[in-house]
Protein backbone atom coordinates (compact mmCIF):
# COMPACT_ATOMS: atom_id res chain seq x y z
CA UNK A 1 0.00 0.00 0.00
CA UNK A 2 1.50 3.30 -1.07
CA UNK A 3 1.31 6.41 1.16
CA UNK A 4 -1.12 7.95 -1.35
CA UNK A 5 -3.55 5.03 -1.04
CA UNK A 6 -3.26 5.22 2.77
CA UNK A 7 -4.11 8.93 2.64
CA UNK A 8 -7.07 8.21 0.35
CA UNK A 9 -8.38 5.58 2.79
CA UNK A 10 -8.06 8.08 5.65
CA UNK A 11 -9.94 10.67 3.58
CA UNK A 12 -12.72 8.16 2.96
CA UNK A 13 -12.77 7.48 6.70
CA UNK A 14 -13.32 11.19 7.35
CA UNK A 15 -16.24 11.20 4.91
CA UNK A 16 -17.69 8.11 6.64
CA UNK A 17 -17.51 9.88 10.02
CA UNK A 18 -19.16 12.97 8.51
CA UNK A 19 -21.98 10.84 7.07
CA UNK A 20 -22.57 9.16 10.45
CA UNK A 21 -22.64 12.48 12.34
CA UNK A 22 -24.87 14.07 9.70
CA UNK A 23 -27.26 11.10 9.71
CA UNK A 24 -27.50 11.27 13.51
CA UNK A 25 -28.35 14.96 13.25
CA UNK A 26 -30.93 14.42 10.49
CA UNK A 27 -32.63 11.61 12.46
CA UNK A 28 -32.59 13.77 15.59
CA UNK A 29 -34.50 16.51 13.76
CA UNK A 30 -36.82 14.42 11.58
CA UNK A 31 -37.77 11.90 14.30
CA UNK A 32 -37.76 14.61 16.97
CA UNK A 33 -35.74 12.38 19.29
CA UNK A 34 -33.25 14.08 21.53
CA UNK A 35 -29.95 12.24 22.03
CA UNK A 36 -29.25 11.03 25.56
CA UNK A 37 -25.90 11.79 27.26
CA UNK A 38 -24.46 8.40 26.23
CA UNK A 39 -25.64 9.07 22.64
CA UNK A 40 -23.87 12.45 22.71
CA UNK A 41 -20.74 10.79 24.08
CA UNK A 42 -20.81 8.38 21.12
CA UNK A 43 -20.93 11.39 18.79
CA UNK A 44 -17.96 12.83 20.69
CA UNK A 45 -16.12 9.53 20.14
CA UNK A 46 -16.89 9.74 16.40
CA UNK A 47 -15.28 13.18 16.29
CA UNK A 48 -12.32 11.79 18.26
CA UNK A 49 -11.88 9.16 15.51
CA UNK A 50 -11.30 11.97 13.04
CA UNK A 51 -8.21 13.39 14.80
CA UNK A 52 -5.90 10.52 13.81
CA UNK A 53 -7.20 10.59 10.24
CA UNK A 54 -6.60 14.36 9.97
CA UNK A 55 -3.04 13.87 11.27
CA UNK A 56 -2.43 11.30 8.53
CA UNK A 57 -3.62 13.77 5.90
CA UNK A 58 -1.43 16.52 7.38
CA UNK A 59 1.77 14.59 8.16
CA UNK A 60 1.43 11.37 6.18
CA UNK A 61 0.71 7.84 7.46
CA UNK A 62 2.28 7.02 10.85
CA UNK A 63 1.48 4.13 13.21
CA UNK A 64 0.87 6.63 16.04
CA UNK A 65 -1.97 8.26 14.07
CA UNK A 66 -3.69 4.90 13.74
CA UNK A 67 -3.04 4.44 17.46
CA UNK A 68 -5.06 7.56 18.23
CA UNK A 69 -7.89 6.29 16.04
CA UNK A 70 -7.88 2.92 17.82
CA UNK A 71 -7.94 4.62 21.26
CA UNK A 72 -10.93 6.75 20.16
CA UNK A 73 -12.69 3.70 18.70
CA UNK A 74 -12.12 1.69 21.90
CA UNK A 75 -13.64 4.54 23.93
CA UNK A 76 -16.59 4.75 21.52
CA UNK A 77 -17.12 0.98 21.60
CA UNK A 78 -17.03 1.08 25.40
CA UNK A 79 -19.67 3.81 25.57
CA UNK A 80 -21.90 2.23 22.91
CA UNK A 81 -21.37 -1.21 24.46
CA UNK A 82 -22.56 0.06 27.83
CA UNK A 83 -25.73 1.41 26.22
CA UNK A 84 -26.30 -1.91 24.45
CA UNK A 85 -25.94 -3.72 27.81
CA UNK A 86 -28.37 -1.29 29.48
CA UNK A 87 -31.09 -2.45 27.08
CA UNK A 88 -30.03 -6.05 26.53
CA UNK A 89 -32.73 -7.74 28.61
CA UNK A 90 -35.56 -9.40 26.63
CA UNK A 91 -38.62 -7.15 26.49
CA UNK A 92 -36.63 -3.95 26.86
CA UNK A 93 -37.74 -1.67 24.00
CA UNK A 94 -34.37 0.10 23.91
CA UNK A 95 -33.74 3.82 23.69
CA UNK A 96 -35.10 5.72 20.71
CA UNK A 97 -35.94 4.47 17.25
CA UNK A 98 -34.20 1.69 15.41
CA UNK A 99 -32.98 1.64 11.84
CA UNK A 100 -32.71 -1.60 9.85
CA UNK A 101 -33.49 -3.54 13.00
CA UNK A 102 -30.77 -2.07 15.21
CA UNK A 103 -30.83 0.91 17.54
CA UNK A 104 -28.41 3.71 16.82
CA UNK A 105 -26.09 2.75 19.68
CA UNK A 106 -25.86 -0.80 18.32
CA UNK A 107 -24.89 0.58 14.91
CA UNK A 108 -22.38 2.84 16.65
CA UNK A 109 -20.86 -0.18 18.43
CA UNK A 110 -20.56 -2.03 15.11
CA UNK A 111 -18.98 1.06 13.48
CA UNK A 112 -16.40 1.47 16.27
CA UNK A 113 -15.42 -2.21 16.13
CA UNK A 114 -15.21 -1.87 12.34
CA UNK A 115 -12.89 1.14 12.76
CA UNK A 116 -10.58 -0.91 15.02
CA UNK A 117 -10.56 -3.75 12.49
CA UNK A 118 -9.89 -1.32 9.61
CA UNK A 119 -6.94 0.24 11.49
CA UNK A 120 -5.53 -3.22 12.23
CA UNK A 121 -5.87 -4.16 8.56
CA UNK A 122 -4.23 -0.94 7.30
CA UNK A 123 -1.38 -1.29 9.84
CA UNK A 124 -0.42 -4.58 8.17
CA UNK A 125 0.98 -2.66 5.19
CA UNK A 126 4.44 -1.35 6.13
CA UNK A 127 5.20 0.23 2.77
CA UNK A 128 2.99 3.24 3.56
CA UNK A 129 5.35 4.20 6.44
CA UNK A 130 8.56 3.94 4.43
CA UNK A 131 10.27 6.72 2.51
CA UNK A 132 9.88 10.47 2.68
CA UNK A 133 9.02 12.44 5.76
CA UNK A 134 7.36 15.12 3.65
CA UNK A 135 3.67 15.85 4.13
CA UNK A 136 1.49 14.29 1.43
CA UNK A 137 0.21 16.42 -1.42
CA UNK A 138 -3.52 16.79 -0.95
CA UNK A 139 -6.30 17.50 -3.41
CA UNK A 140 -9.61 19.28 -2.97
CA UNK A 141 -11.32 15.96 -2.13
CA UNK A 142 -9.00 15.51 0.88
CA UNK A 143 -9.25 19.11 2.10
CA UNK A 144 -13.06 19.14 1.89
CA UNK A 145 -13.15 15.97 4.03
CA UNK A 146 -11.17 17.70 6.79
CA UNK A 147 -13.26 20.87 6.80
CA UNK A 148 -16.52 18.93 6.55
CA UNK A 149 -15.84 16.92 9.70
CA UNK A 150 -14.62 20.04 11.58
CA UNK A 151 -17.78 21.94 10.55
CA UNK A 152 -20.09 19.10 11.57
CA UNK A 153 -18.36 18.86 14.96
CA UNK A 154 -18.91 22.58 15.42
CA UNK A 155 -22.62 22.16 14.53
CA UNK A 156 -22.79 19.35 17.12
CA UNK A 157 -21.34 21.75 19.72
CA UNK A 158 -24.14 24.22 18.95
CA UNK A 159 -26.74 21.42 18.98
CA UNK A 160 -25.54 20.20 22.38
CA UNK A 161 -25.79 23.74 23.77
CA UNK A 162 -29.38 24.09 22.53
CA UNK A 163 -30.31 20.65 23.88
CA UNK A 164 -28.57 20.71 27.26
CA UNK A 165 -28.52 24.41 28.06
CA UNK A 166 -25.88 25.64 30.47
CA UNK A 167 -25.88 22.73 32.93
CA UNK A 168 -25.41 18.96 32.71
CA UNK A 169 -27.55 17.19 30.13
CA UNK A 170 -30.56 15.39 31.70
CA UNK A 171 -30.41 11.58 31.60
CA UNK A 172 -33.53 11.39 29.45
CA UNK A 173 -33.87 14.72 27.62
CA UNK A 174 -37.35 15.57 26.32
CA UNK A 175 -37.03 19.27 25.50
CA UNK A 176 -34.35 21.56 24.10
CA UNK A 177 -33.35 23.28 27.34
CA UNK A 178 -32.22 26.49 25.67
CA UNK A 179 -35.51 26.86 23.74
CA UNK A 180 -37.77 25.67 26.55
CA UNK A 181 -39.54 28.37 28.56
CA UNK A 182 -40.97 27.00 31.78
CA UNK A 183 -44.55 27.94 32.58
CA UNK A 184 -44.63 30.88 34.96
CA UNK A 185 -48.42 30.77 35.53
Amino acid sequence: MTPRIAVLLNTLGLYAISVVLLAAFVFQITLQELPCPLCLLQRVAFTALAVGLILTLRYGPKPSHYGLTIIAALAGAGIAGRQVLLHIQPGDPGFGSSILGFHFYTWAFIFFIGAIAACAAVLLFNKQFAGRDQPPSLGLFDRVAVWLVISITFVNAAGALIECGVGFCPANPVVYELLHRPDTT
Binding site: P37, V44, L55, R58, A157, A158, C164, G165, C169
Partner: peptide, 19 residues
Amino acid sequence: MFFTGLFLLFVATMLVAWF
Protein backbone atom coordinates in the same frame (compact mmCIF):
# COMPACT_ATOMS: atom_id res chain seq x y z
CA MET B 1 -22.67 23.16 28.32
CA PHE B 2 -20.18 20.38 29.12
CA PHE B 3 -20.90 18.55 25.88
CA THR B 4 -20.60 21.81 23.98
CA GLY B 5 -17.22 22.39 25.62
CA LEU B 6 -16.12 18.86 24.76
CA PHE B 7 -17.16 19.19 21.10
CA LEU B 8 -15.37 22.55 20.91
CA LEU B 9 -12.27 21.01 22.46
CA PHE B 10 -12.27 18.37 19.72
CA VAL B 11 -12.75 21.13 17.12
CA ALA B 12 -9.65 22.79 18.60
CA THR B 13 -7.79 19.46 18.55
CA MET B 14 -8.65 18.94 14.88
CA LEU B 15 -7.61 22.49 14.00
CA VAL B 16 -4.30 22.01 15.81
CA ALA B 17 -3.85 18.66 14.03
CA TRP B 18 -4.37 20.47 10.71
CA PHE B 19 -2.48 23.71 11.34
